[in-house]
Amino acid sequence: MNHLWTGVFPAITTQLRKDQSLDLEATQRHAEVLIRSGVSGMIVCGSLGENQSLAPEEKRSVVGAIVQQSAGRVPVLSGVAECSTETARKYVQDCERLGAAGFMVMPAMVYKADPRETLAYYRAVAAATSLPWMLYNNPIGYTVDVTPEMMRELSDVPNLIAMKESSGNTRRITEMRIVNGDRFALFTGVDDLILESSILGIDGWVAGSGIAFPQENQRLWEHTRAGRWDEARALLRWFHPLLKLDTHIKFVQYIKLMVQECGLGSEWVREPHLTLEGSERERVLAIIREGIGSRPRN
């Protein structure tokens, strides 16, 4: 099946200044580097983009800035991470007017919805926009688990076209295919499971750590598409410690520090996140600098 969205859709950081104000120009510069690396799309204001820490007008400013920077070269999706159905509906309508190409929709924040409430929420958000969207399943981070059977119940929602599967259980990829066939494009959202997920059959990758190493990230994806498994394994062995930085509760701080070390942005984060310090900072820096120092030459 030919899906509308396939390939690498990196989730980009929202660049900030030291005083925690938005740095839209820096965010645009990083987006440009990613576009030129060959990505197929881009996701702003996701978890890595610190969506929940941004004011409503800030989120809309980020979406508008990256839509402008992309200039139609790749689709720009926005994360949707609101606490109520109504604010989510309003957000997708505003982003549609700003030129977003679609959405990555998380469950309603804070409240742990049951399956009936979860399905009702997603249907209501979907009905508020004509744009396509990706359902983001991350029960580890957001407690709500959308199972393959629940996705089958949502299969009649025409603009739901993809799923970002971040349960950490690669069995879900096969189970999704058994239950839903090729109805949805499947994206992995767990960086260090990219190779296993590719073997099982995915259509895309919402990359995190790779935003600091976009050329290598794209090359790894292309190896999996071409079935060059020896090359993919070799590249993954270098990349793996860096990819694992995306699987920690402080992944925002870790990846922003990595972006800074690679000269693509700064480490400043929005409170309640705090920049790293002490032994933790030194440990993460050691991983990053080892990766930079041993970076493959081709």
Rank of each mutant, 00 (worst) to 15 (best):
Q20L: 13
T174A: 13
H248I: 13
A232T: 01
T147V: 12
F251Q: 02
S166V: 10
D191K: 02
S167A: 02
F213L: 12
S61A: 14
K90T: 14
G49T: 10
E86K: 02
Q28R: 13
S209A: 15
E222G: 00
S70N: 04
A108P: 00
E282A: 10
V206H: 00
H240R: 10
V146Q: 04
V80P: 06
P75W: 02
R17W: 12
A120F: 11
A234Y: 01
D114G: 13
R297N: 01
C95L: 03
E57Q: 11
R219K: 12
A162H: 05
G208C: 13
D246E: 13
L119W: 02
R29I: 11
G293I: 03
A226P: 03
R295Q: 09
S21Y: 05
V74S: 06
L193Y: 07
E196M: 13
V76D: 04
G227L: 06
A126D: 00
E117V: 14
L236M: 15
K112I: 14
R233E: 13
R89D: 09
D182W: 00
D246S: 15
N159S: 12
E280Y: 08
T247Y: 11
G293Y: 05
K256E: 11
M104K: 00
V76W: 03
R233G: 02
G41H: 04
A232K: 01
R233W: 12
H248D: 15
G7P: 01
V146N: 05
S40G: 14
P139F: 08
P75T: 01
P148K: 00
Y136F: 14
Y142H: 12
A108I: 11
V39T: 05
L4F: 02
